Amino acid sequence: MNTTTAPTITPLIVPASLDASDAAEFLAFGELNRRICDEQVGLPDLAPDAAQMLPDWQDQTDSLDLGFVARIDAEIVGMITLSLALEAEAHAAEIDMLVAEENWGRGIEEALLARAEAEARARGRSVLQLWSLHRPEESERMLVPRTGWGRIPATPLSDLVEAAGFTLEQVERNSEYDLRDDSAPLRSALAEATAFAGAEYRVVAWDMPTPPERREGFAAVLARLSTDAPSGDMDFAEESWDADRVVRREARLLGAGQAVSVVAVEHVPTGELVAYNELLIAADRTGVTHQFGTLVRKDHRGHRLGMIVKSANLLRWRELMPQSTVVSTFNAEENRPMLNINEAVGFIPVSYAGAWQKKL
């Protein structure tokens, strides 16, 4: 039922635990997060639940997370979140709009977007960023990003942000790999890539937490993700990483009962880590596995290191998490080298994301 009643918007309460007396809003946040992904692309497991998100929201050392809850007549009808990198040169606020289909068109999404923009301005941010989800289908109006790579069907959310002055900068492909597939192609691809790379490179692997002697090297390659990964004209600040930040990140990830496998490539002559791949699963080990970071340092590309870390970690994961059936990953449409790897080992597209940006 449509109504013009203006929503009341209040800050999201972050509880000390999900059992706390004030945890209801945050639990609703987790449920709404998954519902939105289900409604938009039929993939609720793309979104983390409340238990997975809470450690991030409790530790604001490396990024600041803010949330706002919209209510009409005491009923929660939508939420919006902002994430702000805390590097001195960071300009952007990343926004996530959470309004279910039944509440769309009541003025709720406009009110939440206005609140997020006002909050970003108040905190000195000059750029707003937002990601929209899209089914892999054609529609009457297809949108092409400024990169020229990929296209997505228009949706109510893309219409909203386009009307609000956002520009579609980039399209990302969400692909899935069936962990029950025959592993022979993976093993063959890994053997070929390892032989091609040669003796200057060797594979190292661990389960989080990262061993102390690896933390500085891992921090250095994690920092490259903000500068070396294709991002179109999205305004991302170069991230500052050290061993302490690695420890904090892993405490947040593992604090929710998640498990993470890391496969990296070490450049033998220098001892530096020059490529890595992470696979993560929630406390429910039967659920969807998410690929987190994957990167090959720019100065070490062309040696098939991407194929090495991807295939080696997928093989490792099949041994570690035999109950998980699928791996989900996002890659920029212009990142053809990584998409070539995905396609070669059996990933198939299941949805798309649009990266939107507005300069204030």
Rank of each mutant, 00 (worst) to 15 (best):
T4H: 15
T4N: 14
T5M: 12
I9L: 04
T10S: 15
V14T: 10
L18N: 01
L18Y: 02
L18S: 05
A24T: 10
E25N: 07
A28L: 15
Q40P: 02
Q40G: 02
V41G: 13
G42L: 13
P44T: 06
P48T: 03
A50Y: 13
A51P: 12
M53C: 13
D56Q: 07
D56T: 12
D56V: 12
D59P: 05
S63Y: 02
L64E: 10
A70E: 03
I72N: 05
I76R: 12
V77A: 04
L82W: 09
L82H: 09
L84P: 02
E87K: 05
E89S: 06
A90T: 01
I95Q: 01
D96Y: 01
L98N: 04
I108W: 15
E110M: 00
L112C: 12
L113N: 07
A114L: 09
R115Y: 08
E117D: 10
A120G: 11
G124T: 06
L128V: 11
Q129L: 04
S132D: 03
R135L: 13
E137V: 15
E138K: 03
E138F: 02
M142R: 03
G148W: 00
G150D: 02
T155W: 08
L157W: 08
S158N: 06
L160M: 06
T167W: 00
Q170F: 00
R173E: 03
N174I: 12
S175M: 02
E176N: 11
R180I: 10
D181V: 14
A189Q: 09
L190T: 05
A193G: 15
A199R: 06
A199Q: 15
M208I: 04
P211M: 07
A219L: 08
G232A: 00
D233R: 02
D235F: 01
F236W: 01
E238T: 08
D242P: 10
R248G: 00
R248L: 01
A251P: 14
G257T: 12
V260I: 12
V260C: 09
A264W: 03
E266R: 15
V268S: 06
V268T: 13
P269A: 11
P269N: 09
T270A: 10
A275L: 00
L280C: 09
L280I: 02
A283V: 08
A283W: 00
D284M: 05
Q291S: 03
G293N: 04
V296K: 09
R301T: 01
H303P: 10
V309N: 14
V309H: 03
S311L: 11
L314F: 06
L315I: 14
W317C: 01
E319Y: 09
V326G: 05
N331F: 11
E333F: 06
N335K: 00
P337G: 03
L339Q: 06
I341Y: 10
A344L: 13
I348T: 10
P349I: 01
S351I: 00
A355W: 00
K359H: 09
